[in-house]
């Protein structure tokens, strides 16, 4: 759809890459995503792959994505070299809502769910507001992708690893849960991205402590623009007009960011 040129495609930790794409991108809101066609000449894999925007290249000359190799598409992506053409489409989706005067904004990320927070964190800090990141990974190697976040001045970073090789041992929801009461005093908004089990827990803890919570969801996507109706998630909300019309929201076009209380977690 829209031609982009690979600026770089760096291995930053085993299995994790950061790819810069020179592209005449329209403005991007943190939390928005793009659809990338991994091999333009091939019909297999057929569908585009969604990736959150990690950062905007200097001078708004394009974007950067952070991705993990999990299957065929991402494997092919990892072989792209600077100068190669890439076919991308976007930015898509709603992105994280900017909350006025958040006190401290809290980001909770699980695994690859950290990707959309780099841009968000930079935005929040630029506005002169406070931000904290709770990040959960399997172990030290996965946690290494958070390195850049530590360089952001003013961002408080807390890490939990499942094997205890870095930060606290346990799940990110454990460290978030422990701090939630204290956070409730100074934070007013929580943004979360990661596996659905984690998101559900973050939404629950946030609600219990009176924190507003926004979750960014992931679903298999075919179109990315709300027309195939494939990426449905039960939102438990009705539209008002026409009885069951809004029972399903589309992650690509109504999301990927939803208020935590709108999601019917049992259905995920």
């Amino acid at each position: 759809m829209s031609e982009a040129v690979v600026a770089h495609n760096r291995l930053i930790a085993p299995g994790y890459y950061r790819m810069g794409l020179q592209w005449k991108s329209p403005g991007v809101t943190p939390g928005q995503f793009i659809m990338l066609r991994v091999s333009a000449d091939s019909l297999d894999p057929l569908l585009r792959r969604p990736f959150g925007v990690y950062d905007v290249l200097r001078g708004a000359k394009g974007i950067e994505i952070l991705y993990r190799v999990v299957g065929r598409g991402t494997k092919i992506m990892s072989t792209l070299r600077p100068g190669d053409m890439a076919d991308i489409f976007g930015p898509l989706g709603n992105g994280f809502p900017a909350v006025k005067d958040p006190g401290r904004a809290v980001m909770v990320a699980g695994g690859m769910g950290i990707a959309p927070f780099y841009m968000l964190a930079k935005d929040i800090l630029k506005r002169g507001e406070n931000a904290a990141l709770f990040y959960g990974a399997r172990g030290r190697t996965d946690a290494a992708i958070a390195t850049d976040f530590r360089k952001l001045k003013g961002l408080k970073v807390e890490v939990a690893t499942e094997d205890g090789s870095m930060g606290e041992k346990g799940l990110v929801t454990d460290i978030f849960g422990k701090k939630a009461v204290w956070l409730a005093g100074e934070a007013s908004v929580v943004y979360a991205c990661g596996p659905s089990g984690m998101l559900k827990e973050v939404a629950r803890i946030s609600k219990k402590n009176g924190l507003r919570c926004f979750v960014s969801l992931e679903r298999a996507m075919a179109c990315g623009i709300g027309v195939c109706l494939g990426c449905a998630v039960r939102t438990g909300k009705t539209a008002g007009k026409g009885t069951d019309r809004k029972k399903y929201g589309m992650v690509c076009s109504d999301g990927p960011v939803f208020p935590g209380e709108d999601i019917e977690w049992e259905s995920l």
Binding site: P45, R219, A222, C228, L229, G230, A232, S267
Partner: peptide, 27 residues
């Protein structure tokens, strides 16, 4: 009348194709 369609997952990719089970969700 409007239809809410089938529960997810509704799509999956297959070799050179895809499977869908949208269930005619429409307004």
């Amino acid at each position: 009348l409007p239809r809410e369609g089938n529960p997810p997952p509704r799509t999956t990719e297959t070799p050179c194709g895809m499977l869908n089970a949208i269930g005619l969700q429409n307004i």
